[in-house]
């Protein structure tokens, strides 16, 4: 081991680097909440939490709609009650709009996280398998989340235009959800679209309502089996409940009713 005076001329070989190119850079700065959201685990949390909010909406939406079967007055009063809640504590529609805004934000976040996760996942496998994949555990619902989500989204836009804003419904009358709904679903094409969208929604929920437990780390051997049962039951109930409307309306079990009060609407004249 002589003390060599001349410095080495040959560069010393450095360790080989991992050839995998990073698919993205996670910059560890910014407010913690943003750092959390930047990670895909965080995005899945957001997906789960917003999904849970949207599930809550779907449940209450169904419960409200089921009043259709009580009477026209009940459902119209229900619509009125939504605008009026919570009684005299707040000015009229303030709470409703707050909830709607929350729902809107949840929806946007749900979409955005879905979109960015999709983009990340595309980068994570730039070259697809060249032979046919044979999936073992992934079911139809989990592999079609993207598409069922898009179907629900498209339908939702129509649904709002049809029944909330009335732009897609020539006979729409403010304040008479009963007849608006019945009229809308009496159109076979709309009824069919409604059914397709709700079947897509059910598949989306079948995976989502289970998946959210995983994403939020709710995992306990004692309840793990219940998570699947819950998701199946939830998706099933929503499907049955929501599908009952177009079916019963198409079968004229539920039919248009002329209003007791003004304004007289066109469908009732028919």
């Amino acid at each position: 081991m002589a003390t060599t005076a001349t410095p080495p001329t040959k560069p010393v070989k450095t360790p080989p680097v991992t050839p995998a190119r990073p698919i993205r850079k996670l910059v560890p700065n910014g407010p913690p909440i943003l750092r959390f959201y930047r990670s895909s685990v965080g995005k899945k949390w957001v997906m789960a939490v917003t999904g849970l909010m949207l599930m809550g909406f779907v449940v209450f939406h169904l419960i409200g709609n089921l009043k259709l079967y009580l009477s026209k007055e009940e459902i119209n009063l229900y619509g009125e009650a939504l605008r009026d809640m919570p009684g005299h504590l707040l000015p009229r529609t303030v709470l409703l709009w707050t909830l709607r805004s929350g729902l809107f934000v949840a929806f946007v976040l749900h979409l955005h996280s879905a979109y960015s996760l999709t983009m990340i996942n595309r980068k994570a496998r730039p070259q697809q398998y060249q032979s046919r994949r044979d999936y073992v555990a992934a079911d139809f619902a989990s592999r079609t989340m993207r598409w069922t989500g898009i179907i629900v989204l498209l339908y939702l836009v129509f649904h709002l235009m049809d029944l909330t804003w009335g732009t897609a419904n020539s006979e729409w009358v403010r304040g008479d959800p009963y007849n608006n709904l019945v009229y809308s679903l009496q159109r076979p094409v709309v009824a069919l679209a409604y059914a397709v969208a709700n079947i897509a929604l059910a598949f989306h929920l079948y995976h989502g309502a289970w998946s959210m437990f995983q994403s939020m780390g709710i995992n306990n051997p004692r309840i793990n089996k219940l998570r699947r049962s819950f998701a199946t039951a939830f998706a099933g109930l929503i499907l049955v409940g929501n599908l009952s409307f177009p079916i019963l309306i198409q079968l004229h079990v539920v039919d248009l009713q002329c209003p007791h009060t003004e304004p007289t609407t066109a469908p009732c004249k028919a």
């Binding site: 685990v41 996942n121 994570a124 555990a137 992934a138 989990s142 289970w210």
Partner: peptide
């Protein structure tokens, strides 16, 4: 570990294929 994982790999959407494989 999560952040270094995400530098190279995709995200979980709970397909459960990993567990099966």
């Amino acid at each position: 570990m999560v952040e270094s994982m995400e530098t190279y790999f995709g995200s979980c959407t709970n397909h459960r294929e990993c567990e099966a494989a």
